[in-house]
């Protein structure tokens, strides 16, 4: 018994050391991004390049906002990520409820098929998908990109929520039904309130995934009015001349929204994941 608590104490030390190492490993690349964004070109290139910016400057950020439509990109990314999140939450909730609680032919096939949609390689799908969007006249629109992103977020959300809904005790819903609630009523009044952390997790994933997407955004968007942050970044690469300073500034700023959202929702997300794990 004593040996266990002694081991535990030494484990705490091991843990602290490893934690420090992992923080270094995780944060140094992020540091380099920020450091580069605060440097002048002279400090960026070559062996005169500095590890710490000697003359820190916000010039790269100023250039970003003054010379490029970066704010517009941020707005577009926000519209698209929020739109995708809401649509996937609604679609996902409805579909997941059906799969978790209703009996109908094809249930198992659909439930399992959801996972397989991930296997479909996006690197190639963009050409037929582009044809679909052209047909629907949705190329170069926010709606078009949102619709495209549903292709990966809806199956994922449905799949996740299906699991959570199943873990909500059946008796609660039965009671509601006996009280004269409709199916949808019980979904809204009984199941959803109990699944808030799960909805937070799902929303969080839908948001970050669409915020970070590059491949589809690159092909399906032409105009500045719709262009997202990730694809706007590549415009810093003018043929074969890189502009690392402004590019790293833009990179840093575009990583912030998902981080802030995680910071705010962290408790919910961990709780949501925990809830999902209970039955594990």
């Amino acid at each position: 018994m004593r040996s266990v608590s002694r081991t535990r104490r030494s484990l705490q030390w091991v843990g602290n050391t490893l934690l420090a190492l992992m923080l270094v490993w995780t944060l140094v690349p992020f540091y380099w991004m920020i450091a580069t964004s605060l440097k002048k070109d002279r400090e960026i290139y070559g062996f005169e390049a500095t590890l710490i910016p000697h003359q820190p400057t916000l010039a790269n950020y100023a250039r970003l906002f003054a010379k490029t439509p970066f704010i517009l990109y941020l707005r577009n990314s926000t519209i698209i990520a929020v739109g995708t999140t809401i649509a996937s939450l609604v679609f996902g909730t409805l579909g997941a409820y059906a799969l978790a609680r209703l009996r109908f032919p094809g249930r198992k096939v659909i439930a399992r098929g959801l996972v397989f949609t991930y296997l479909v390689p996006p690197a190639l799908l963009f050409i037929p998908l582009f044809a679909v969007m052209s047909t629907l006249r949705l190329v170069d629109t926010h709606q078009g990109l949102i619709l495209t992103y549903l292709s990966f977020s809806v199956p994922f959300c449905t799949w996740l929520l299906m699991g959570y809904f199943r873990s909500v005790p059946l008796e609660l819903e039965e009671a509601a039904l006996v009280d004269g609630c409709t199916r949808l009523g019980s979904l809204v009044r009984v199941i959803l309130p109990m699944s808030l952390p799960a909805l937070a997790v799902v929303a969080f994933f839908a948001f970050t995934q669409s915020w970070n997407e590059f491949l589809y955004a690159n092909v399906f968007v032409n105009s500045v009015e719709v262009r997202t942050v990730t694809t706007g970044l590549t415009l810093f690469i003018v043929e074969d001349v890189f502009f690392w300073g402004p590019m790293m500034a833009a990179s840093f700023l575009s990583a912030l929204p998902p981080l802030v959202i995680y910071l705010i929702f962290q408790r919910w997300v961990v709780k949501g994941l925990t809830l999902g794990a209970v039955k594990g």
């Binding site: 690349p29 992020f30 970050t208 575009s254 981080l259």
Partner: peptide, 14 residues
């Protein structure tokens, strides 16, 4: 927890 989570928030292309 938040700090160790940073890489997940950064877009892959970045």
């Amino acid at each position: 927890r938040t700090l160790l989570f940073v890489p997940w928030a950064v877009p892959v292309i970045i």
